Amino acid sequence: MANRAIDPFLANVAPDLLRPPIDMVRLGLDPRGFAPQIVNLAEVRSLLRTRIARQLATAPDPELTADAESAAYFTMSDVGADARSRTDLPTA
């Protein structure tokens, strides 16, 4: 990656999620991506689902449909340990 500041966040991300083109919704919600680092994951997932649904209602798009499926597919149990109790995550 070109930006070293993001390296700590990407350290535990599955390599297949980082292959271009990078799908940011999948990267953020996939348990092998950023999901374990998001403290308010349920809220973020809900906001993304609402936004994607609104966008699909106005302009159907196959890639966005895949994102919507990703947002619906991953659950809190997929992530495992509660991110708030993790001590191995990067901090700001």
Score class of each variant (00 low, 15 high):
Glu43Asn: 11
Arg84Tyr: 09
Arg26Met: 12
Arg49Ala: 03
Pro15Leu: 10
Thr87Cys: 09
Leu27His: 07
Leu56Val: 04
Val39Arg: 10
Arg84Lys: 12
Tyr73Pro: 00
Thr87Ile: 10
Met1Ile: 08
Leu41Tyr: 04
Asp78Pro: 04
Leu48Lys: 04
Ile22Thr: 12
Ile6Thr: 11
Ile52Gly: 03
Gln55Ile: 09
Ala66Arg: 09
Ala66Cys: 05
Ala59Trp: 05
Leu27Gly: 02
Ile22Arg: 02
Asp67Gln: 15
Tyr73Val: 06
Thr65Asn: 08
Arg51Phe: 09
Thr65Arg: 11
Arg49Ile: 00
Ser70Ile: 01
Arg19Gln: 08
Glu63Arg: 15
Asp23Met: 01
Asp16Gly: 05
Arg26Glu: 12
Val44His: 03
Leu29Ala: 07
Ala81Asp: 06
Arg49Met: 07
Tyr73Gln: 09
Ile52Leu: 15
Ala5Lys: 13
Gln37Thr: 04
Leu18Tyr: 04
Leu17Ala: 06
Glu43Ala: 15
Arg84Glu: 11
Asp61Thr: 07
Gln37Asp: 01
Arg51Asp: 13
Arg32Phe: 02
Glu69Tyr: 10
Val79Pro: 00
Glu63Gln: 15
Pro36Trp: 03
Asp67Thr: 00
Ala57Glu: 13
Ala71Tyr: 01
Ile22Met: 06
Ala68Gln: 05
Arg19Trp: 02
Asp67Met: 12
Arg26Thr: 14
Ser70Arg: 01
Asp82Phe: 06
Glu63Ser: 13
Pro21Phe: 06
Gly33Asp: 03
Met1Arg: 07
Pro36Tyr: 04
Val13Thr: 08
Pro60Ala: 07
Gln37Ile: 01
Met1Ser: 14
Gln55Arg: 14
Phe34Leu: 13
Asn12Ala: 14
Asp61Ile: 08
Ser46Leu: 07
Ala14Val: 01
Arg54Glu: 08
Asn12Gln: 12
Ala53Met: 07
Ser85Leu: 14
Ala72Tyr: 11
Arg45Lys: 15
Ser85Glu: 11
Ala72Thr: 08
Ala72Ser: 09
Pro90Met: 12
Pro36Lys: 01
Ser70Cys: 06
Asp7Gln: 11
Ala81Lys: 13
Leu29Phe: 07
Ala81Phe: 07
Ser70Tyr: 03
Ile6Val: 15
Ala14Cys: 10
Ala57Ser: 15
Ala92His: 11
Arg49Pro: 02
Thr75Val: 13
Arg54Asp: 11
Gly28His: 00
Ala71Gly: 04
Ile22Val: 15
Ala42Pro: 03
Asn40Gly: 08
Glu63His: 13
Val13Cys: 13
Phe34Gly: 02
Arg49Cys: 02
Tyr73Met: 08
Arg4His: 10
Thr50His: 10
Leu48Pro: 04
Thr58Glu: 14
Ala11Asp: 09
Ile6Arg: 08
